[in-house]
């Protein structure tokens, strides 16, 4: 299991697609927002938590279609399916690798981009915490979407269509927690609900992902 994790991270780093691309995309999306809504710093600071959450979510989504498709094409998934590692475990590991290479860098980059968006000082801690707790759910749910569409040529667009509605609860609670944090309101309810969703999806989604991947490998 460790071997798979190390390999996936190593591949993400070497191919340049993992760390770099997701982060750059996050940066660009956030930078584009003031151009679209105007440079009013009051407005920006009000919408900052939501924009940063949407940016993180889209950056996560961007790398999902490579998560399994490359391994599907070169036969790795076939070989993994005949290996002693259960498919559920393999997919959990791949989701973890995706989180480490995509979600985690976003968490660290978010405060920097928060400066660009005039995020109020009290909001930084809660923004980072909400992203830290929420991005694992994004990776695990995304793995399910990737497993659903792995056999489909040009499945990228379909993947977005399938995965984004599943992201709704995480986004609502995560962005709400960050927003309440920024305005100094009580964040505990949305934060706890989101942590609950994260925990439940991390525990249960790999079973659904493995079920659909087995169908796709058939």
């Amino acid at each position: 299991m460790k071997a798979l994790l190390i390999r996936d991270i190593r591949l993400a780093v070497r191919a340049g697609g993992g760390f770099g691309l997701g982060l750059a995309f996050f940066l660009i999306v956030v930078v584009m927002v003031p151009f679209a809504v105007g440079a009013n710093s009051e407005l920006l600071s009000r919408i900052a938590p939501g924009v940063l959450w949407i940016g993180a979510l889209l950056a996560c989504l961007l790398s999902l279609d490579r998560l399994l498709a490359l391994d599907f094409e070169d036969g790795t998934l076939d070989l993994l399916a005949t290996a002693p590692l259960p498919v559920e475990a393999a997919l959990s590991i791949k989701a973890l690798a995706h989180w480490i290479t995509t979600g985690l860098p976003l968490v660290f980059a978010a405060p920097v981009l928060g400066v660009l968006m005039n995020l109020p000082l009290q909001g930084y801690g809660w923004l980072v915490l909400s992203l830290l707790l929420g991005t694992p759910a994004l990776s695990v749910i995304g793995t399910f979407g990737a497993a659903l569409t792995v056999g489909i040529k040009r499945g990228g667009l379909l993947l977005s269509l399938l995965v984004l509605p599943l992201y709704v609860p995480t986004l609502i609670f995560g962005a709400e927690a960050a927003r309440r944090g920024a305005t100094g309101a009580d964040v505990s309810t949305p934060l706890l609900l989101m942590a609950g969703i994260s925990a439940a999806t991390v525990a249960l989604m790999p079973f659904a992902s493995a079920a659909v991947l087995r169908v796709n490998l058939r």
Binding site: P165, L166, V168, P169, I172, F173, E176, T189, P190, L193, I197
Partner: peptide
């Protein structure tokens, strides 16, 4: 999807 639809319903209410 059903599970997430129910979750979304509560999330949206909140």
């Amino acid at each position: 999807g059903s599970v997430f639809a129910v979750l979304s319903r509560y999330a949206v209410n909140f």
